[in-house]
Design a protein around this nucleic acid. Sequence first.
RNA 1: CGCGGAGAAGAGCAGAGGCAGCUCGUCAGGCUCAUAACCUGAAGGUCGUAGGUUCGAUUCCUACCUCCGCAACCA
Length: 508
Amino acid sequence: MHLSHKNGNNQIPNAFFSAPIFYVNGAPHLGHLYTSIAVDVMARFRRMIGGLTYVSVGTDEHGQKVAQSASEAKESPQKFVDRMYIPFLNLVNKCEMKYDIFIRTTYDEHKKVAQHFYEKLVKSKYVYEGEYEGWYSSRDEAFYADTDVKDGKALNGSKVTWVKEKCMFFALSKFKDKLLKYYQENIESILPYSRYQEVMGMLNANLPDLAITRTRFSWGIPIEQLPGHVLYVWVDALTNYLTVLGYPNNEYQMKKWWPNSVHVIGKDILKFHAIYWPAMLMAVELQPPKKIVAHGWWTVNGHKMSKSEGNVIDPFALIDEYGVDEIRYLLMTEMSFGQDGDFNEKRMNARLNSDLCNELGNFIQRVMMFCYKEYEETLSLFENLTNVDIELLNQSNAFLNSAIKGMENAKIHIYLSSLRSLVRLCNVYIDEQKPWKLSGENRKRVLSVLCEMVKRVAIFMEPIMPLKAKSVFALLGYMDNLDKTSWNELLKVNKLQKPEPMFTSRGK
RNA sequence: CGCGGAGAAGAGCAGAGGCAGCUCGUCAGGCUCAUAACCUGAAGGUCGUAGGUUCGAUUCCUACCUCCGCAACCA
């Protein structure tokens, strides 16, 4: 019975998890919070089963829109982004995301990497100079085909104007077959499967070449050989995934992490990550990302979250209101990973009360309080156990196996519902064993099983609710020292303080 | 023209080619260690419509119907 993959011959499942870099042209909202937490949960889970991780997050700070906002604020773009990125940094810290690096695309190191990447693209011969004449949307910073434009608007409604400009093109069209072949051979590289199908659909449709330099604005990464041009924002933004690993100089990091890269993104930026990015990587002879995990969007009470409707959710207020761990749990539970989810306060409260207070919190409380009153300390697992005891303990293995399977496919919601089932089994066990009616060694035996289960449940909680898990570890006498990958070691006996309820109910 | 998502017990939502599941809510019991928390049982659905593939579909295919999103913010 081992949690650890270290002990077997299994490969250590290392992974590089990237969060998207957030565009600083506005304030953080619920979506940024959700994404950050999702990345963190996956990474923490990976560490729990004995893998090494590297986690990146950051901000995307170039582009015409930022330049516009800056001039509206009567600031230089640099001053503007120096101010605007801070809330994003605060957010990832506040939600307990554990990251190895926070990258800003305005950092010199990143600019150098992006420029280097561009030069490699040029050397690859997949870049050519062209004169673009066509419909351009400054909002999207993209060109549109004739057939996609109607009454001066693109299909998505953005205003377009007829422009003529010289720029460099990336021969994306030449990668159609390569990409198709790659994805046919790597079906699990895009999750969930519905997104995979979407990408295959896009690949089978029209795949025009991509204009990768711009001259219509200057707030971007300049290109040495092309005065007046800046890099297309997506070339700039996507290369952040290489910058954070120290590309191109840090070969050690690249070798260690790049083959195991997992990009977690929102569904809106799927095309850039699943088509543009792998094609560019292929051009410079780097591997495409190992996995692209695209999640859905939040609606609020059934409506799209939008400023004009005034229902944009402030993530900071949300965390203050519910608590970090609570909101982490609620967001992960309420959204079936990959699909859109609805944020509904009433349901959030109901779930908080039933899942966290009544089932999980109460389970821990009733066990710890019992121990405190009876023995004033925790109990180490007995050697002579009944079949029922062993049956319960074995359930945690069953849980773990299904959790590993589920998390491979980024099904965080499945992980949580399994955890709930496990807690329920613990509650059933208490009710059936009735330790309050037992005496002497039997009572002690049952409580020793329960202490062990509290420990295991706390370990499983950790990826989702790191702070609460830590406080349970502390109750059990582990402080920070519980090695989650060798969870089978016996629980230490620990002098108990009177336990306090872990979760507070809301909105009754 | 279109693209994407969804239609399943009162509500919200997993699921999977083979006796229809979960949570909340409702009703009835049990328990008292615990945050009036916990446990057990019951009621409640012809899994959008019509075809097709199949020994068998709610799960696959086709058509259709209805709803939501596709200006900005933006995961």
